[in-house]
Design a protein around this nucleic acid. Structure first.
Lengths: 213, 213
DNA sequence: CGTCAATAACCTAAACAGGGTGTTTTGCAT
DNA sequence: ATGCAAAACACCCTGTTTAGGTTATTGACG
């Protein structure tokens, strides 16, 4: 199996050197660089050509979160494993949005740290359970898309509503459904009653917001 | 430390009995029950009073996903660790929404299985890296609310558009803005040009979808 | 001084909201 | 199978709203 090239961005000297030793001392791993900040991020990455980057979230100057964004833009294939002391919701969320693959706490045992490096390389997203817990809460709370409510619309009414949302006139809807415009009008009257609205635009807004479309 | 009471819902007999042996054979763990289906879910939980439930996602009759919902409703404090063969996006997502805490693949090593049980009990959300990867994608893609695009609408135009989305007629908007209906009409013409639409409903749909409101 | 946003007005054809009446289809229960 | 109720269909009428066009004044900004 290929030896994994790893580089480290970590401002704490002890930790940085500790990780360097750990990685270089383990068969199958190789630490191609260990840097105290991200001032020369692009250059550092280019010169070391890593498979995986270990990135501290909290760093002076360019933070790990910004660094992820920059690095991912230039080197989309490199896997990034974030290291953090605090499992702060906001920072995790930002890192995710910027494209980091894994998230582990710094107090993770060395053996698991190495396992995590290997896992990000293989396409997984290792994360410590406490961080995973927070990520789950994000997933659970963000898409507040529920509303089983379809307001008792019939199939035909839903179809007509869909066309309404697309901005079509009664006439166009009639053509799409192969029915007369008057019938469309009839359906729309019923839709309005069921949604309790009085205009196309209100119906469209409600349809989108309540996710009926 | 307290011995963890675990129960299992798993239709595969070999796996069920294997897990039962594993858990009962490990100090600090105790398997209080192992069931082949969720027909008597509530009764089973009440009688065994578990700390953690190991729940197979794929089961005949009541699926693990449904079971999570039912169980969490009656016993909100019990931690649930889902087990699955396939890391199917949709099932994971549903389980999360129903409130399960952890997600591991069935081929996870026994030692990690036990670690996962302990972790859910302690408030974490253990998950195998491949599942975590999918969860991350959900977080990352769900709030796709970006679109810095506000289509160069002026402040007044945005205000008018906001009222449009609320379903107001030109006349009502005019009153809300203390301007004449003709002026509203003028603003709306400009809005249509900028959004490249030709009706209220299209404008409303675009405003909501592109998040201008 | 020119440009742009905001304001205002007028016009016309088309579209819409809301009300009614009536037929055909179709699923469901007796 | 028979018959009811709910959908889907179709048409009419009336007044309102909207889309799209033109034109023009004001004040702010560089």
């Amino acid at each position: 199996m290929k030896t994994l090239r790893v580089i480290i961005f970590e401002d704490n000297r002890n930790l940085r050197e500790g990780l360097f030793q750990l990685i270089n001392g383990t068969p199958g791993f190789e630490c191609a660089g260990a840097f105290a900040n991200c001032m020369e991020l692009i250059k550092d990455i280019r010169q070391t050509n890593p498979d995986v980057i270990l990135m501290d979230i909290e760093m002076p100057g360019i933070s790990g979160i910004e660094a992820v964004q920059i690095a991912k833009e230039k080197f989309p294939d490199v896997k990034i494993l974030m290291e953090t002391i605090f499992d702060d919701n906001d920072k995790i969320f930002q890192s995710i949005c910027n494209g980091a693959e894994g998230y582990i706490l710094k107090n993770t045992a060395p053996i698991q740290m190495l396992a995590a490096i290997k896992e990000v390389y293989e396409g997984g997203s290792p994360m410590t359970p406490s961080i995973a817990r927070k990520v789950l809460k994000m997933v659970k709370h963000k898409p507040s898309t529920e509303t089983v409510n379809d307001f008792d619309l019939s199939d035909r009414e839903k179809e007509v509503l869909k066309y309404l949302v697309e901005g079509m006139s009664y006439k166009l809807i009639a053509e799409s459904c192969f029915i007369s415009p008057e019938t469309v009008s009839g359906h729309i009257k019923n839709i309005y009653k069921k949604l309790q609205v009085h205009s196309k635009s209100e119906a469209v807004a409600k349809a989108i917001r309540k996710n009926i479309v």
